[in-house]
Design a protein around this nucleic acid. Structure first.
Lengths: 153, 153
DNA sequence: TTAAATTCCATGATATTCCATAGATATCCG
DNA sequence: CGGATATCTATGGAATATCATGGAATTTAA
């Protein structure tokens, strides 16, 4: 399974067009090679989150673990699905960022794509740099580690 | 399972190309024989760490055990995936080191590959020599030993 | 018909592939 | 056992393809 890795900084032009990094495009591609992606405003951060449609379906499955009709399920579903946008790529691998999303991330003329494994985020480059520092500090301070493998869940 | 062993010193040319030691290439190869690797800046040392893509996928799977959108998951994913780079080998078994990684490791025209079992590190040769000395001294002074095998914890 | 959005094309920069050489190691044959 | 040949590896350079990016042209909507 393809992962989103590394950080790329691309230009945003006056029409809101951005090249999706080639490495991300191939990670977004479905089995039939069609790349479609979903974006929405991240919770808790001034950035956008994105991933392929297939991952969206997994989120849906996870949400189903909540009791149906629960307030929590409703809140999550509304903020994830209600706010997300499905974007298509043009022939050159670019997408057009809606104004509302550009505003949420505070993007100017550059967008930083950062891979987080199964999803990625889009930041204003300077803000991402700061965020990386705090994330690193948090991992260090709280002693966060990656859970062991094996079949415990 | 193939392990990374021993130390090799290879040239880095002006474009940042380095031959991955042949012994490492076979350890990197997937089941289908395709060798792709992931590199990132090591935490705590002025060197790079690398391993096969499959190991990265295992990390991704482990991270999935966190709740999606949790702060801990976010911090870890950003630190682990955001700074890593997926590299491919050319037909001659070489990879191209990004500028940022060359700078982090302080590489000049040579890179020392040292095997650490499931992963390996890339150092500036002189720095690695010093590091080996302190590591040996530490093992001796603190009486470090390798834990028993079997199913502990 | 104007404005907005989508598609198409051109270009420089970057990355990838290909080829050629040389040293080392292994293999083969006398 | 010794020498010659073949194979693999590392390395440099050049040719080729891909990518990001800006602008123009064409389509669609109001």
């Amino acid at each position: 399974m393809a992962l989103f890795l590394s950080t790329y900084i691309n230009k945003v032009d006056r029409k809101g067009r951005v090249s999706v990094p080639a490495a991300f495009r191939s990670a977004l591609a479905d089995a039939d090679g069609v790349a479609s992606l979903v974006l929405f405003r991240a919770h808790g951060h001034d950035c956008l989150e994105g991933f392929g449609l297939s991952f969206m379906q997994e989120i849906s499955a996870r949400l189903d673990k909540f009791d149906m009709f629960s307030a929590a399920q409703d809140d999550l579903a509304l903020s994830v699905f209600g706010d997300s946008v499905q974007l298509s790529l043009d022939g050159d691998g670019r997408m057009i960022l809606p104004e509302a999303l550009i505003a949420h991330a505070g993007l100017l003329d550059e967008a930083a794509f950062v891979g987080l494994g199964r999803k990625f985020q889009i930041w204003r480059p300077e803000v991402l740099a700061a965020r990386k520092d705090t994330a690193r500090a948090s991992v260090h301070d709280k002693g966060l580690t990656i859970p062991q493998g094996g079949s415990h869940d």
